[in-house]
Nucleic acid binder design. Structure first.
Lengths: 250, 250
DNA sequence: CATGTCAGTTGATCTACATCAAAGTGGACG
DNA sequence: CGTCCACTTTGATGTAGATCAACTGACATG
């Protein structure tokens, strides 16, 4: 085992295709509470590129990502776009107590979400305080992630931004189990260059160029268009500008 | 009254020098609950520039700003700094359920905070669910603000950043009551150029230059070093890049 | 098998902001 | 009332990343 190992322990993830094991909601639920949740839940599927909700639209459910990736983004009048969140499987979207979504929610890949109608979900929150507590914890995590991302957006170079993003996705990607015994790390980069650029506050050309540079330097290896291999996670981590143990992002 | 008026209605602020009227905590508290809070609260004062807690340090209280301004910021190994939050009077800092602060908390001006020891505060949260709910709402607000700030950091020009910051502070500054009858808006800019640059992801020189430009264009007027007058709030708002009704930031 | 489309790469050039450096300014304090 | 110091402004120059534009390669589709 390489010394990279501890840095790849991430994230309590607990949504094995959903039979209600969302880390968001029910980590501490009693069976009867799970029954209740079961009654108000339903699934929705989206194709890559489809919009789940537009900013400002009514969003009458909260949801947990089952498979695929969703993005949260904001758009300025003139079309400049900034992604403000990335939802990977087991992540939670939507906010009790709010009528509308302040962001566009978009399916970055094919996407399945497990939704709960908002009204009954909120009623349930009132009766089941630990759900609210769970939600507070999660929201605090998201806030930390958002603020870490502010540091990235405000102060990191393009190269550091790319390295950070790759490390973060690697850290969270479920398929990191597919890690080869030699310490290499292989996974799917599920974002287009454009999506990456929207997340990082760059242009897609700059993303492409920096990826090429990292590739030439051997920090990453690409296979096909989306497979990425990280030969040495630690070495890549050094390029993020973060202090040793990396962020707690996304 | 100018048409700017509606855009200047901000923010439920409710901490009139603290006899426990924190919007964070006790908007819905019963008298006996207030008594409890009263027992675990204490005040702390800081001079401008002093550090309240360092990132990573233990923070065994939560607190609400009574007077002055505090900043939250993150620092990279090599010293690059990014402010990730600005706490104005009535804002809340600290997170139940977390041992340490992930950010430096610094007094930007002389500062008085009303603190609650964390342990008893958490106990109280468990017994008084609406405090937890309140905290969830607030945290969601902060998350929205952080994400709006991500848009600013990732996509706005220096000029737009400055205009945004000024509008936001104007909107929140208590002394906006001091608004002259002619629709002018006069208030105190409580941040140094350096603090502004740390917040906006710029250098202090760029901040200074852009301020000068806005001044020459008559969008703002300065008086002494810190007083700012906005002759026409709407006109400045147009420079922020935001859509008409502005953000909900800070 | 030509044809179109879409994501990605690469190159040439431009520009907004950073960087380095030097004056200026106001207000606190002897 | 001078003078000192922290803050601010302004200028000259450098550069990372944006912008504009052309090209590639992997597919689908008729």
């Amino acid at each position: 085992m390489t010394r990279a190992t501890p840095k790849l322990q991430p994230y309590s993830q607990e949504c094995n295709d959903c039979p209600i094991r969302h880390r968001a909601v029910c980590a501490r639920c009693e069976p009867d509470e799970l029954d209740l949740l079961e009654q108000i839940k339903f699934y929705r599927s989206f194709e890559a590129g489809q919009t789940v909700v537009w900013a400002g639209d009514k969003m009458d459910f909260v949801a947990s990502v089952v498979t695929g990736i969703a993005t949260l983004s904001q758009t300025m009048e003139d079309g400049r776009r900034q992604m403000v969140g990335l939802l990977l499987p087991s992540d939670f979207a939507g906010r009790p107590g709010r009528e509308t979504s302040p962001y566009d929610v978009t399916a970055a890949t094919d996407l399945v979400m497990c939704c709960f109608r908002k009204k009954p979900f909120q009623d349930m929150m009132l009766r089941t305080p630990h759900i609210g507590q769970r939600l507070l914890e999660m929201t605090l995590d998201e806030l930390d992630a958002a603020r870490e991302w502010m540091l990235l957006l405000g102060r990191k170079t393009a190269r550091e931004k790319i390295a950070s993003l790759i490390c973060i996705i690697a850290r969270r990607d479920a398929s990191l189990q597919l890690r080869a015994s030699d310490g290499q790390l292989r996974f799917d980069l599920p974002l287009t260059r454009e999506a990456m650029s929207e997340y990082l506050g760059l242009t897609l050309e700059t993303v492409s160029r920096q990826m090429s540079i990292l590739r030439k330097e051997g920090l990453i290896v690409t296979e096909g268009k989306r497979q990425i291999i990280i030969p040495d996670f630690d070495r890549l981590l050094e390029e993020t500008g973060d202090d040793s143990d990396g962020g707690f992002l996304v």
